[in-house]
Computed example of a mutant assay.
Amino acid sequence: MTAEGDENYLTTAEVARRLRVKPETIYAYVSRGLLTSVRARGRRGSLFSPTEVDRLASRSVDHSGVVERIESELTLLQNDELYYRGHSARELATSWTLEQVADLLWTAQPPARSTPNTAGAVFGVEREGVQLAQAAMGVVPEGARLTDRLRVAVAVLGAADPLRFDLSAQSVTAAAGRLIGTLVTALPGDMGSGTLGARLWPKLSGEAPRAEVLDAALILLADHGLAVSTVAARVAASARANLYAVISAGLGALDGQYHGAAPTLAYEFLRRAQQDPLKALSDQLRTGEPIPGFGHRIYQHRDPRAEVLLGLLGDHPIVGTIAAVAERTPTFPNSDLAIAAIMHAYDFRPDAGDALFAIARMIGWTAHALEEYAAPALRFRAMGVYTGQTT
């Protein structure tokens, strides 16, 4: 490409000074599609549009590390509230169906409020896929967690999908709905009918179902900005990994003890607190570790997700247990504790919280993957600093 009226264009050295990077980094930006180099007639070297350079400068966190600020239209965390595409998550969880929220996150088009329940259409299943997923889940040891079964099944279902490399939005959303629906159906246990929450309930509990509770939880946990598992999923999508690989990347990060395991830690703390709230709190404080299920790195005074979910439990005794602990600590219940409360209230299996979190977050990872597929490929590349021995 040749520059027209190149007197306003910037040289490589000028761009490097403006972005505070080495000239070699500018070449890396060009190779990754972040900058476009042009040639000037009668001049040597590359030139760059000042507008394009300014745009890159405004969205970059650290040019020396080639790490970008990730722009997203999906989730806003502001003033202790959560929004999906500008819609309050509180309202979505109590007034919309999960299927409508998934459609909002994936397509940016909110459905008409009169739209009937579309659970079967959004999270549909194919019998062959369910059988394959059940066979894959059956390979893991008997004592394996539900999330272990989910990870194995995702990998196998991906290998069996010959069209997994079709990254068009329509194909990705169809595959995501089918994958989530198939995973829920394939989990061990009886099969419910109706919304995804109704279908998932008997997999987690033998109590009389309250599908609206699980549907609300799935909505409120679907996305939470750039959590570590979401970043992992976006990095995979940036490399143009297929949806199954993106979900696998997210599940891998979710398996860390500081992320996806949080509901289980809150569940165990709440189990002790039901016997003696003050002793459970005292024992936890003695360890020097944070109180599981309380406080948050982003929210300052309340977690809106926890408020909605605990509100759905009404006057259940478990809510009183939480209140007895909360009045003795300056922090507040978070969504992990709310999920743990639901687990205790309805006698969920002990590993249900992690699985619920994983299934919900697959909806968000899909939305982030769609955004990433529309962005320049391979745009995440941290610059390593060698600290080893030299010769």
Results as ranks from 00 to 15, higher is better:
68 E>T: 11
211 A>L: 14
302 R>A: 04
365 W>N: 09
245 A>I: 03
190 D>M: 05
297 R>G: 12
316 H>M: 05
93 A>Q: 00
339 I>M: 15
65 G>M: 10
299 Y>C: 09
135 A>L: 09
43 R>I: 03
306 A>H: 13
3 A>Q: 00
122 V>G: 01
271 R>L: 14
237 A>N: 06
64 S>T: 13
244 Y>N: 09
10 L>E: 10
239 A>F: 03
188 P>I: 08
109 Q>D: 13
158 G>R: 03
37 S>N: 14
19 L>G: 06
246 V>H: 06
130 V>A: 11
237 A>F: 05
248 S>H: 00
364 G>I: 03
214 L>Y: 08
86 G>D: 08
319 V>G: 08
148 D>S: 15
313 L>D: 02
240 R>I: 02
326 A>D: 03
300 Q>P: 01
193 S>C: 05
373 Y>S: 15
391 T>S: 12
165 F>W: 12
3 A>Y: 00
314 G>M: 00
390 T>W: 12
55 R>M: 05
82 L>K: 02
133 A>S: 08
227 A>D: 10
374 A>D: 14
304 P>F: 08
141 P>A: 14
33 G>H: 11
174 A>M: 10
85 R>A: 05
371 E>T: 07
193 S>D: 10
195 T>S: 15
159 A>I: 06
178 R>Y: 07
158 G>W: 06
43 R>V: 08
189 G>F: 09
21 V>G: 02
291 I>Q: 01
129 G>F: 00
229 S>Y: 04
119 A>C: 10
17 R>S: 13
127 R>M: 11
47 L>N: 00
47 L>C: 00
387 T>W: 09
91 E>G: 00
337 L>F: 01
328 R>H: 13
198 A>Y: 02
203 K>W: 05
261 A>C: 06
340 A>D: 02
385 V>C: 03
187 L>R: 04
66 V>E: 13
310 L>W: 08
130 V>H: 11
75 T>L: 01
76 L>E: 15
21 V>F: 02
103 D>T: 15
363 I>P: 06
383 M>T: 15
81 E>W: 03
44 R>I: 10
280 A>M: 10
131 Q>F: 03
100 Q>P: 01
316 H>W: 02
14 E>N: 11
159 A>V: 10
26 I>K: 11
246 V>W: 00
133 A>M: 04
205 S>M: 12
179 L>G: 06
84 Y>P: 00
281 L>E: 06
197 G>N: 09
58 S>V: 08
267 Y>S: 10
249 A>T: 07
297 R>K: 13
359 I>G: 02
44 R>C: 08
332 F>Y: 03
22 K>V: 13
201 W>C: 13
372 E>R: 09
301 H>M: 01
192 G>I: 09
60 S>H: 05
209 P>N: 13
82 L>A: 01
174 A>H: 12
217 A>M: 15
360 A>Y: 07
189 G>E: 07
318 I>W: 07
48 F>V: 13
